[in-house]
Design a protein around this nucleic acid. Structure first.
Lengths: 190, 190
DNA sequence: ATACTATACGGAGGTTGCCTCCGGTTGCAA
DNA sequence: TTGCAACCGGAGGCAACCTCCGTATAGTAT
């Protein structure tokens, strides 16, 4: 959750410290308010000036991406764990459920994490690709087992999970989430 | 597109005129910029003060809803038209495609139009309910024909359409939209 | 035609959040 | 210890939101 991120060209100790503190504050804020965080609040909670925040995270997007890095890593790990599960389709389903849970404050995460189209080599970009590839393995297993149609692609599934979350985000009742999910699952089965 | 909206307690002629002009400006803006319209631009283009805009549309949401009223009406009409189509499932599919096209600038519309949970009796609320019910008829026909599973609900389909649109909104390539759509369609079939 | 008033107009200005810029500060290597 | 590259931080400019209230006028009553 809060391991110090190591950088290629090492920064000064104070800079690294501020980076960590800001990131921690951002994570806390995202956890409770979702993606519509107020950057100046983050800075204040972190005990740094707004300028410092912007130096470390030039865009709101970058801050969000950094805040979600852990989630991407964990989702990848969960996929790894599920590779050994006996029922490939169930494993895939479980993992897709996790996708929705993790992206619960979805709008924010979605844009940041779902697409790995960002500047090559970013930590978050790599993490996203890894996560997606791990998911692709789960999908592949289910396909090899003949449980899922071979033409289904992991990116579509991930985006659908994301779509389900945000389409229900401002709805008062979350009761449609599961039916929608089941409908998608029905759609991928062989 | 621009029929004068009649109101219960008639307003002054100048007020009605301004209402119409503002709405026209809002529709134009929405058509080209999507939901992230700038209210002061709308007012300027309409040739009224910002105060006047806010009197007629106290919240951004209300303005958007009013701007999308036509689309909801047209979607309802399209559903009516498709009721006579020979192939029920194809008719449903066509209509769902229309949903995506109309909601193309989706984020804005989505919240406003997809849910009919707003204050009872609003024009837009009624229009949404009507639209959805018209869609439900299409769905029902496909179900009666044995082409779609009987447990599918129209609300889930609409939200999935919405979800597909917004999940792809910030993606550079729209190429996943159709696969995702097809996947959903596969999921509803009997 | 005139006067009256409920209704409507409009924009100045307060608020919030975004982001930049640059004078001052400081870690750290020599 | 010193010098400077790296870093800090917040003042301030900007954009958009929204409110408030003095002014204007449509519609009506006389």
């Amino acid at each position: 959750m809060s391991e110090t991120v190591v950088r290629k060209n090492p920064r000064r100790a104070d800079a690294q410290h501020n980076y960590d503190v800001i990131l921690a504050a951002a994570r806390a804020a995202v956890a409770e308010r979702g993606g519509d965080i107020v950057l100046e609040d983050i800075a204040r909670n972190a005990g740094v000036g707004i300028g410092t925040l912007y130096r470390h995270f030039p865009t709101r997007q970058e801050l969000l991406e950094a805040a979600f890095l852990d989630e991407a890593l964990e989702l990848r790990q969960r996929a790894e764990d599920l590779k050994a599960a006996p029922a490939p389709l169930d494993a895939l389903i479980d993992w897709l459920h996790l996708q929705m849970d993790f992206g619960a404050h979805g709008r924010s995460m979605g844009a940041a994490v779902m697409n790995a189209k960002h500047t090559e080599g970013t930590e978050i970009q790599i993490a996203c690709v890894d996560m997606r590839e791990a998911g692709a393995v789960l999908l592949g297993r289910a396909q090899d087992a003949g449980e899922v149609r071979p033409d289904v692609e992991i990116i579509d599934l991930l985006r659908l999970m994301h779509g389900i979350v945000i389409a229900n985000e401002q709805a008062p009742d979350q009761s449609r989430v599961n039916p929608m999910f089941d409908l998608v699952i029905a759609g991928i089965q062989a």
